[in-house]
Design a protein around this nucleic acid. Structure first.
Lengths: 235, 235
DNA sequence: TCACTTCAGTTATAGCATGTAACTGAAGTG
DNA sequence: CACTTCAGTTACATGCTATAACTGAAGTGA
């Protein structure tokens, strides 16, 4: 935001990159990842083939940037939720926001949470991005008082907090709790449990696997979140 | 099984088809779906390019058959579970079998439950296949007595049972219950809830999204199944 | 102002993929 | 033994990714 329009050249470059990405996202939405072809994108924006390689080193690089952007957008959507209510109301709101974002652009969601793009695998960075999305869940679960059944998972979370300083910092940022505070491990456990549950419903829904089923994901997801809230005794 | 070796020609054809599919599956496991290239498969098994089109009309057709086979294999793996124990023990066993199959061939699992192959979408058939996988879950949840929180979803299941005869038949096959028996809707609700929860954990794990996380999916999944068993008051 | 650099964009080309067409020859069939 | 069926071939059309070599205009410093 600071150095937005340094030089005309850079501004133009940034604009063209954006145009390419927007075309790519549109093609992704219309025909899946196979439809994202540099040649056709180039033709669409009035360039000829190899010109795109000035802007993206390869097709995979372009896709990787779409993934990064999508994570950012999902994180923004989740962060935009007002956690004022706290407790299970906030958890419901987070899950709903997550779902709404995913269903508004199912192809993008499947791109980031579904099958990893073959060549491209950025484990470290992916984890980082996922954490940005899960942050607000930490906040909500920090006030949880888990039932005894959750004990093994809380223990694993506590161990992780002890071993990984980056995780400890992440949890502290969203909960204000130090790594050795009992609430930290609880928050971490809640987030790491809520995430696969939400993804389970949303991922199947985005992939169209619920079509033909009689139950509505809009009923199922809140219900699962409620069960989870019960397990963590959220107010 | 009946007309296995009708004519030598057909037997040869079947054998070649199998060879092609095995090569495709191997390539899928090694380099993802992009690595499944007819030309390279042909070269590998000593044929030259277009010959494969005698056996599969197109690449998509080959992939579609991989999907079908994979569903079958997953259904077999789940059906092989001994439900003698009943109750939550059986639920745990089912989820564990589902997970074990998926992790033994993550690329295949992502192929059937992840991003749908672009061109190819067979909603009706896919639903059918998914049902075959979920059958044993119905059996387990038939003896459930859901907590009041599950009421809305049970109602949706009951409505679905009333409207869709095929679903009613499916449920009856796995539970022995008629569509209007209260247990039928409960079983359906349980299966349709357990499925996304299991998929949520397994899908993320297969996609490698748990690497770098401190919690082990092997801990998380049984725990979630236990919560679910509680909600259905499984013995 | 003018040489010099930087860089967007071009055409040409290599390589590999899917898929079709037309042909060849051997295995099955009445 | 004529005839059909069909696996497999080569040749080719098309479309994609990616690289190489060139062109020309926009920026840059003395």
């Amino acid at each position: 935001m600071a150095d937005r329009a340094r030089t005309p050249r850079e501004r133009y470059r940034e604009q063209t990159r954006g145009e390419i990405k927007r075309s790519a996202v549109r093609r992704l939405a219309e025909g899946g990842v196979e439809n994202v072809a540099l040649l056709r994108i180039a033709k669409e924006i009035g360039l000829s083939g190899p010109a795109l390689y000035r802007y993206f080193g390869s097709r995979d690089e372009l896709l990787a940037e779409l993934v990064t952007d999508a994570y950012q957008a999902l994180a923004d959507a989740v962060r935009a939720v007002d956690l004022g209510g706290g407790g299970r109301a906030s958890l419901q709101a987070l899950a709903a926001a997550y779902r709404a974002w995913a269903l508004a652009q199912p192809h993008l969601y499947l791109l980031i949470q579904g099958t990893p793009v073959p060549g491209f695998e950025a484990p470290a960075e992916t984890v980082e991005r996922a954490r940005a999305v899960l942050g607000p869940f930490l906040t909500v679960f920090a006030e949880g008082r888990p039932t005894p059944a959750l004990e093994p998972l809380v223990a694993e979370s506590a161990a992780w907090l002890r071993e990984d300083a980056a995780v400890a910092a992440w949890v502290e940022r969203w909960t204000g709790l130090a790594a050795d505070a009992p609430g930290a491990a609880v928050a971490l456990t809640g987030a790491v449990t809520a995430w696969p549950q939400t993804h389970g419903v949303v991922g199947l829904e985005a992939a169209g696997q619920f079509t033909g089923m009689g139950q509505r994901p809009a009923t199922l997801l809140p219900l699962q979140m409620n069960l989870l809230a019960d397990a963590f005794r959220l107010p």
